[in-house]
Nucleic acid binder design. Structure first.
Lengths: 350, 350
DNA sequence: GGCGACTATCGAATCGATTCGACCGAATCG
DNA sequence: CGATTCGGTCGAATCGATTCGATAGTCGCC
């Protein structure tokens, strides 16, 4: 086996067989530099005969100081992270940009154990997506290694390019929409605030102990308009978890006439909870979502929601990472969400 | 910038500062070999002072001949691939095994453009998951590079470790269950057969032109029991696409009393299509799924389905890849699905 | 007290490519 | 016709670590 591995042909072997020097063979493969057509053909033929598949990426990355790999750090459990369609869309956007630019995508998770080892991979850059864990340790490690860092919707960090969304303002706009309709008692169903994946009442303590930027900003936005709005923190991203949170909220706060859910899937769950409780949406309860993912066939409602450019966020992050690695500079980008007026909000019954 | 990059400390610099040789410094970091406690401390201190984050992974991988990276090849569009919960579960299983074993996961997509470049990343091994595209080209490239290959539910390939599922037998078992209930006119709603993402009637030509192993095996299993069962190929993995396919099937074959859907999400769509058409499940139409994913809250039915160990499949693939890279040998594994009797199948009405 | 067994450390070779500067012959230009 | 440039090729240095064999010391033991 070791023998077999050793026998794998190298550029030098190919060069020898083609009767040229290694440098020339290298040029023949990379195309960087003048090589006569005849020579190139000879080298390629020799490679073919020897079964040489091209320069070893490992050696290339050492010499070039670049591996062509950009990491994406996601939530601990992938099933969990991928249950949020926005995360998937963002990842798609990232992949869209990375592929054509010649970069590969390394999927990393911010497990406790891996925090230390997360920087051990040969990456040129890294993109942080919706991580709940504390970012200081890994970010420091990345910096030391000279790995370019891009963060999506994270709290401001020195030396990190940020891709942002107007979470607070957008939510506030949605809240104002509800107030204009006449709502005064509004409840919140929020995304998780940390790694405790359980349904629980929203409290100031929870907010302060958390560093999940997006969730916090959306809570702030809602409270900019409804300062005393009570809330329930969902255990996850799915409609089921929205259902559970919705039940809790409706049971503990029967007075509310509208719910601001922090994602469309949560909103879907809330609608189910309402229907379960014999309420009609939007007549008895208005429901506002966030994200603007398509929910065809899943519900008969056209959800009123804040549509955000998820894929575009990922693209921007991918572009920024590539720019940082290649050129050296990239500025952050800020995206905004747009209120889509669907059929799930209406004036309160009263 | 280039200067800054050049100034990043190297092991040699750390060694010099600690007053030891590079070899000793290396041992101090890797722990492979005898180093006095005092020396190790001195080296670590020097590293700390210089802001050295440990050996460069690029250099390590060249020297060791290993990068610690295992690639996972998925469908072209990630949003599409991740719309199948089984794919996500498999990926989770893979990640579960790779992380603790010290390997990172590179996410690759089998785009047409990337087929050539797919092997350019410094990988030690690769896992192929549900790829519809032709695998010959990339597999050959992987082999030439000495990259270990593991494939999940793929057609047999030389030099590739296979992780299999009893798709055909399981589907046949489900079909027999329907026949035992008394069904004679059964329809199929299948997963995609290729990259043409559109709803279309199932035809022999389509099957022959396809190389999507899983879909084909499940069709065969169904036809082992109901040789003439007509079918519709869904445009994708989601419930919406199942709904579309279900509508087509029910419209073109009103005589059928049961549907064998190739996934739970498709089954869910078929149930919606049936209800839409005024049929009740299971009284007017029996529906059989595949996968055994949890569909809590999404439907009021307890789906009769073939439960497969998705995460475990991913784990097995991850383990095999690691074993192949580290030791040298690994045998394939074969998993089986179990019929879960839910409330969506019953004797035909008549 | 001397010799073998260790321990800690070091030097040098190596992994497989890229790249810069030098070199040479041929074509171009004045 | 001689000087100049340029296209094509080659040598050697380099990227940053790991690792094998060699070399000093150190200790124990007879």
């Amino acid at each position: 086996m070791t023998t077999a591995a050793t026998q794998r042909p190298t550029l030098a072997a190919v060069a020898a067989r083609a009767g040229v020097s290694a440098s020339t063979a290298s040029l023949a493969f990379s195309g960087a530099g003048p090589v006569s057509e005849a020579t190139r053909a000879r080298v390629l033929a020799a490679a073919e005969e020897l079964g040489y598949a091209g320069p070893d990426p490992r050696a290339q990355s050492l010499r070039k100081g670049r591996s062509g790999i950009i990491g994406v750090v996601m939530e601990d459990r992938l099933q969990y992270a991928f249950s949020d369609p926005v995360n998937v869309a963002v990842l798609e956007g990232v992949a869209d940009e990375l592929g054509p630019a010649g970069f590969a995508l390394l999927l990393l998770t911010d497990t406790a154990e891996s925090v230390a080892g997360i920087a051990l991979a040969p990456m040129d850059g890294v993109i942080l997506i919706g991580c709940s864990r504390d970012l200081d340790v890994p970010v420091t490690a990345f910096r030391q290694r000279g790995i370019a860092i891009v963060a999506i919707e994270a709290e401001p960090l020195e030396g990190v390019v940020h891709i942002d969304l107007d979470n607070r303002e957008a939510t506030a706009a949605g809240a104002r929409h509800l107030r204009e309709l006449g709502h005064e008692r509004v409840g919140l169903v929020t995304l998780p605030l940390g790694s405790a994946h359980e349904t629980q009442p929203l409290s100031d303590g929870l907010i302060e102990g958390s560093n999940v930027h997006t969730t916090i900003q959306r809570i702030r936005g809602a409270r900019d308009v409804f300062p005393d709005a009570p809330g329930v923190v969902a255990a996850g991203f799915s409609a089921e978890e929205g259902l559970a949170a919705g039940r809790d909220l409706l049971a503990s706060h029967p007075e509310i006439t509208a719910v601001i859910a922090q994602s469309d899937l949560l909103a879907l769950g809330v609608i189910r909870a309402a229907e379960e409780a014999g309420m009609r949406v939007p007549n008895d309860l208005s429901v506002l979502g966030f994200d603007g993912i398509r929910l065809d066939g899943t519900t008969h409602h056209d959800l009123t929601t804040l549509v955000q450019p998820s894929v575009e966020k990922g693209r921007a992050a991918g572009r920024a990472a590539v720019a940082l690695v290649e050129g050296g500079d990239a500025r952050g980008e800020s995206f905004s969400s747009e209120l889509h007026l669907g059929s799930t909000t209406a004036p309160p019954r009263a």
